[in-house]
Computed example of a mutant assay.
Amino acid sequence: MPGTEGWGFTDDRGAELGAARVPLRVAAYVRAGAALLDLGVTPVAVYGSGHDGEELDPAKAGGLRAVGVPYLGPGRALGAEALSELRPDVIVDVTYDGKSPYALDEAVAERLGIPLVALSVSGELTLPAILDRFAALAASLTAAPGRSASGAESAVGPVPAAPASESVPAPDLAAAEALLRSVAAGGGVVVLALSGAGTEQVHLARPQAWPELAHLAGLGVRLLDPGPGPGANWLTGDWAGVAELRPDLVLFDEREHATPPYALPSGVRLAPWNPETPPSPAAYARFFRDLAEALAA
């Protein structure tokens, strides 16, 4: 009978996870949960990171709000009792170091005996590789045609997910990439990605440290590197330093904990960027189309 077969998955820490049957109830870090939703797996609940508050950040929510997925607050504040009440069959988080889940204390899951999958979103992987891994996990969690991970019948059924070895972009993503490549080739717009940290401080993204920014560069987008200094992913400076780099377009961190663009020179165009975009073809297709529109403006 579908859904009763054994389930197994090796995550990006090398942890070999398994269960007697395909997990139906998935709890997830919000970024992972939004990606799984795009891929046809509806979480029973999602939790945030240490940057998040008691309300779900709209920039990180993806389609979760629209389908009523509950938000539990920051993952590090979750205890065994709160997770136990959910009765999850599996927990899905992300990892930046290939060793530990980012947003949840793994000991909580261990005490409850719940498998915890951690998929890498670090700069050591390309964006296509990250998308492939989430697609492979979603495919493994698809218990039966027409069913979501919560066990409820879905009107449209799960979105087909490519195996990790295929590396074939979804049609919408391929079209968005082609559009962005065409727009980037037609202009000389210089782009700087950043995250505001108050009126005196700003974090400037190092493009090659971010899979999606490196992918943009591969599509022909002219991304500024902030230059030498401490920090693997960000160079921390002040807003005057942003002006000195003379970007034409600023990709600004739109998450709630980040400061909106502050004291930029006149004439600099703005476009939102979520450094935690859900790792799904649909989410990145939207981002690439929006960026293409901003570049062409």
Rank of each mutant, 00 (worst) to 15 (best):
S84M: 08
A297E: 03
T42G: 05
P260D: 10
L24N: 11
S154M: 09
T142E: 09
S100C: 03
G8C: 02
S280W: 00
W273A: 08
S167N: 15
S280R: 03
A77F: 05
D253S: 00
P158A: 06
S165R: 14
G151L: 04
D93M: 05
P2I: 06
A138W: 01
G220Q: 05
D52L: 11
L245K: 09
A77P: 14
T126F: 04
G63L: 07
L137N: 04
A144H: 12
T142P: 06
F252I: 11
Q208G: 09
R269A: 08
P128V: 13
R87Q: 15
R206G: 04
S122N: 12
F287M: 11
G241P: 09
R111D: 06
L141E: 02
A162H: 03
W234C: 03
G218R: 09
A59P: 09
R133K: 12
E166Y: 12
L213S: 01
F287E: 13
P58H: 04
L264R: 01
A205N: 11
E106Q: 15
A15E: 15
I91P: 00
A176H: 02
P247Q: 15
D57T: 12
P23F: 00
P247E: 05
G6W: 13
V190T: 13
A144F: 11
E16D: 15
L216A: 07
D105L: 06
T277C: 13
G79M: 02
W210N: 10
L291E: 04
P211S: 05
A45G: 10
P281M: 03
L137Y: 15
A20C: 02
L36Y: 01
S49W: 01
A155V: 13
Y102L: 03
A143V: 08
G40P: 12
A164I: 03
A118N: 04
A178N: 08
A283C: 07
G237K: 03
G113T: 05
G79R: 09
N274M: 01
P88K: 07
T4A: 13
G75F: 02
L78K: 10
L125T: 02
S195M: 14
W273H: 08
R255T: 15
A297M: 07
L295A: 07
I91D: 02
T259N: 14
A185R: 13
T4R: 15
H257M: 00
G62R: 10
L127E: 03
E276T: 03
A143Q: 10
A80N: 12
L180D: 03
P74M: 12
V183M: 08
N233T: 09
E106H: 13
Y284C: 06
L219H: 05
A292N: 05
L245S: 14
P230T: 00
